[in-house]
Design a protein around this nucleic acid. Structure first.
Lengths: 244, 244
DNA sequence: AGATGCCAACTGTCTATACATGTCAATATA
DNA sequence: TATATTGACATGTATAGACAGTTGGCATCT
């Protein structure tokens, strides 16, 4: 029987189970398949993709394990109800968030340059040293009080012209979602003491703890942006509420 | 070839891949296998358990996907370096979370009493001063290291017998979800410096920042529980990942 | 009409086998 | 000596076939 690579010659192959997962996820993302909707059965996917049952099964099983699908023996496979999926951190623009509270948002652009990834920054984006990247640093203020220091590294090839954007008028977040449609987001939340930069730019004391949100965003299977968002604890906290 | 159930007659069968996963996790939990240690190769597991390669492979692959193992083609399978990472979205029992990482969970019950709400505690649960409540304080440890101080106030009428539960064997979370089915959850995340209690019980220095997660849970339209979960920043962080 | 039994559809698990790829060390070659 | 080559070992993916358990509807018998 033909192996995966026979189908694609020498090109880097995408595993078949991954292709099926993507197919299903795309349908959901497009709004074509809605919560509760039925997904093709394994038998139907076998026909449609010409794969074996184990392969179709693996794709659906992994989507089930990650909470995207619900499966019922004897019945079928369905798009899961996303009710329990309240994400504590929405990908919202800090500017919108501040304006939603009825306050004035202001940005101070400390730095916005094109540079080459060095030994420190290359691992953050998972690229080789020397790869062109953008590096920006912006202080966001709410009603005149600094509440977020945003330091960001962006993959050069993913967002051409990043270093020429006026970030007092728009935010990196906004620019990036247009340049590179969001595919996946990873978050890490930590409590940290402020760096020297953070202390000065956020105008806080050395003994004030900060909430650090590290946000990695992916687009087209590439890690496109790495951002460190530092918030003084006295001025900012995360909130989340959801019903089951 | 014999099916799973032939092996066990009519008893509820545990899938073979699950048995292998448990075997590996047990080894890690016992401290027998430590981070970086090598795990049996698929070939070895095949011999040891008498399963096919696909079954052994599935067990190891799922443990890899959940972050317990690291695998390298041509080299082998190893116990992953575990950093304590909490998935904030899930209302998950800290004990389960720790065990899922393949570590031992231990609870130290500092306090668990029935008392009456006072001026300080009454507002937390939104009740009148004098209302009967429970008040517990538990230190959760992962592999012997304290990673969470859980201080909790529970509405007396919602969870009778709370003060008599042995919280070294179960967690308040677990007990509460049975006593009062979850309806809504509110979260607040802050960075704070440790309280005197937290310093002593978590065995940290005064200058180590902590992640504070405040969790309010509602059941049948009543605020049933108010918990302050304090985590040393050096030992715990929240993690969240999702695809759009 | 109602109870019963049967069957098709569907998911869950497992085996045996195959080929592909990555890593490393030993061996052969220039 | 330095550099290729080879082969053992390990994981990654995929196939084809098998049996088990669950569910729901349809046909049949009472």
């Amino acid at each position: 029987m033909a192996s995966v690579n026979d189908r694609y010659g020498h090109a880097a192959p995408e595993p078949l189970y991954a292709a099926i997962k993507k197919y299903v996820l795309d349908g959901i993302a497009r709004g074509d398949r809605r919560p509760g909707d039925r997904i093709e059965s394994e038998a139907e996917l076998i026909k449609k993709f010409g794969v074996s049952r184990m392969t179709a099964h693996r794709a659906l099983r992994e989507l089930q394990n990650s909470g995207v699908l619900t499966r019922l023996p004897g019945v079928g496979t369905f798009v899961a109800d996303p009710s329990a999926k309240g994400h504590i951190i929405e990908i919202r623009n800090i500017a919108d968030e501040i304006r939603a509270r009825g306050h004035q948002h202001a940005s101070l652009v400390v730095k916005n340059v094109a540079e080459k990834a060095n030994r420190k920054t290359a691992p953050l984006l998972g690229v080789a040293v020397g790869t062109p990247i953008f590096h920006s640093m912006i202080v966001h203020s709410e009603a005149g009080v600094p509440i977020q220091l945003e330091e960001r590294f962006v993959l050069g090839s993913a967002a051409p012209g990043y270093d020429e954007v006026d970030f007092t008028r728009t935010t990196p977040n906004e620019f990036l979602t247009r340049a590179a449609p969001l595919e996946r987001v990873d978050h890490i939340v930590r409590a940290v003491m402020p760096s020297t930069d953070a202390m000065e730019l956020l105008k806080i004391k050395a003994d004030e703890p900060c909430l650090l949100l590290i946000r990695q965003t992916w687009s087209q299977s590439r890690l496109v942006s790495y951002a460190r968002l530092t918030h003084p604890s006295s001025r900012y906290e995360f909130e989340d509420s959801f019903t089951v």
